[in-house]
Write a protein that binds this DNA or RNA. Structure first.
Lengths: 124, 124
DNA sequence: AAAAATACGCAAATCATTTGCGAGTACACT
DNA sequence: AGTGTACTCGCAAATGATTTGCGTATTTTT
């Protein structure tokens, strides 16, 4: 099944990917349609095997569902590069919110915007 | 100018609004086109008077640009209600990231997903 | 008031993603 | 093997929020 090829790409990627990036990658090995990629990704998300995060650019990024995986990004507004960070312990905050508001938090997304060191350097 | 009507709606709203919500609101008072609303909103964002945040539903939400304004939301996956929270001091984390990575953070967005107390109650 | 600039409406375009449909393929049970 | 049922896919068209081209109106500047 083509699902396996698609899932493999995600499993082997160190960072999150767009549907199109996955499509391009898988296409190098097998013949596949973009809508199949989207359909498969939705299946994987439904089965909690893959995490989908919509970023400020309105494009969905997919990555392996894994508690260890950071879903926190530093996004450079100059070069559009995305860097992930694990430097934020939001679980503490999530627990506090649950305790004080009764809202049962199951997931979260965090995006920092700014200029990356590389672009800061190049600006000079 | 219609810009003033649009800006007023944002100024007077306690929470962030979609372009369509703003359009509906403004339409009650004056005759306006949806594309004018979008165009005006982009202007306001460019002038840093309004903040635009794209949420996981891929819809842009607009609110008054204001350091005091929380850009952190609790979003209920059942009723789709959005509640804002100020319970997270991310500035501390932002400073830490800047210090340790050199990434110059200018803004951030945070979205918690889960089930709100109301929906938890109704589920029983 | 004429010229230059900006605001606006309308319809068409955009772009990531979804969906309807029809054909191909796999698995199960007899 | 044969038939039935359920997926899996490709393809083309649909979707929906947002943008854009263009012509007209309205405001601002001179």
């Amino acid at each position: 099944m083509k699902k396996d090829f698609i899932f493999d790409v995600i499993k082997n990627s160190p960072n999150s990917l767009t549907a199109e990036e996955i499509y391009n990658d898988v296409s190098q090995n097998i013949d596949v349609n973009l809508s199949t990629v989207y359909r498969t990704l939705n299946n994987l998300v439904d089965k909690n095997l893959v995490t989908k995060v919509v970023r400020q650019d309105k494009i969905a990024y997919y990555e392996l569902a894994n508690e260890e995986n950071p879903k926190h990004y530093l996004i450079c507004d100059k070069c559009s590069g995305a860097f992930s960070t694990e430097m934020c312990n939001l679980d503490k905050i999530a627990r506090k919110i649950k305790r004080e508001t009764g809202f049962n938090i199951t997931s979260h997304t965090l995006e920092f915007h700014g200029i990356c060191p590389e672009c800061i350097k190049n600006a000079k």
